[in-house]
Simulated assay, not measured.
Amino acid sequence: MNFAIAIDGPAAAGKGTIGRAMAAHFGFPHMDTGLLYRAVGRRVLSGMPALEAARALTPEDLQADGLRTAEVGQAASQVAALPQVRAALLDFQRAFAQRAGGAILDGRDIGTVICPDAAVKLFVTASDDVRAQRRHAELTAKGADLTLEAVLADLQARDARDMQRADAPLKPAEDAMVLDTSRLSIDEAVEKAIALATARMAAREFSPIRPN
């Protein structure tokens, strides 16, 4: 039985951390779909047209160095607003979601577009200030020289692009469970997300196959 878990939300809300932890807990494969757009954005920065970059994407591209930089993040947000790019990556994501046994995907349009029939849908969010503090700490730990104000402005600009784009805008699915992590530790957020997913699984009489 296929059992997809869709996790959506804005940048630095915690969806990637939660997705990886849930994948380890349930024994599901996990895809950070934001890496798809970062990989495309990285190629665009090197001079490749966006649509060509999307069509040529391979799983190996998701392991490339430098995908988490602020510059690549900006490029990713810009290419993600292009309907042709999103369409080119649609099958890539849906094939992953259909893996036998279950799969977890996190992104911005998983529950609304990629997996509208996902058994579990979470929308992970947090306040702008909290998200900016998290992203600033992450980037400065990697050596980036950025002010907190610059990171906040970048996040807000990205949110605006993601929410206002005509194709697959960032928004909670109608049946998504909203998880605000502003006041939660990582462990608390993961625990709450697992509890929500477990309850939904029980309601649907699904028991995941855990790894040995």
Rank of each mutant, 00 (worst) to 15 (best):
M1D: 11
N2T: 12
N2C: 10
F3Y: 15
A4W: 11
A4F: 10
I7G: 03
A11M: 05
A11C: 13
A11S: 07
A11T: 12
A12D: 08
K15F: 02
G19N: 12
R20P: 07
A24I: 00
A24R: 01
H25E: 14
H25L: 01
H25I: 04
H25K: 01
F26G: 11
P29M: 15
H30Y: 15
H30N: 13
T33K: 02
G34M: 10
L35M: 07
Y37S: 12
R38C: 13
R42P: 15
R42D: 15
R43G: 15
L45W: 11
L45N: 06
L45Y: 07
G47N: 08
P49G: 08
P49R: 00
A50Q: 05
L51P: 06
L51Y: 10
L51S: 06
E52Q: 02
A53M: 10
A54M: 03
T58W: 01
P59E: 10
Q63Y: 05
T69Q: 08
T69V: 13
G73P: 05
G73Q: 05
Q74K: 15
A75M: 09
A76M: 14
A76K: 13
S77N: 05
L82D: 15
L82M: 12
L82W: 06
L89Q: 00
L89W: 01
L89G: 03
L90Y: 12
L90I: 00
D91M: 03
F92V: 11
F96A: 00
A103F: 02
L105E: 06
R108F: 04
T112I: 08
T112W: 00
V113F: 08
V113M: 08
I114V: 14
C115N: 05
P116D: 04
A119K: 12
V120M: 06
K121T: 02
L122Q: 10
T125N: 07
S127M: 11
D128E: 14
D128L: 09
D129R: 10
D129M: 08
Q133K: 15
Q133W: 10
A137E: 10
L139I: 13
L139A: 11
T140C: 02
A141W: 03
G143Q: 07
A144E: 13
A144Q: 08
D145A: 09
L146A: 14
L146H: 14
T147E: 00
T147M: 01
E149I: 09
L152P: 11
A153V: 02
L155Y: 10
A157I: 13
R161D: 01
D162I: 11
Q164M: 08
R165C: 15
A168R: 03
A168P: 06
A168V: 09
A168W: 07
P169N: 06
P169E: 06
D175P: 07
D175H: 02
M177Q: 14
M177I: 15
V178W: 03
L179T: 00
D180F: 10
D180S: 00
R183E: 14
L184C: 02
L184H: 03
S185W: 07
I186L: 04
E188M: 03
E191T: 13
K192G: 09
K192Q: 13
A195C: 03
A197G: 08
A197Y: 11
T198P: 00
T198Q: 08
A199L: 12
M201C: 03
M201Y: 02
A202V: 05
A202F: 06
A203Q: 13
S207C: 15
I209F: 12
R210T: 10
P211C: 13
P211S: 09
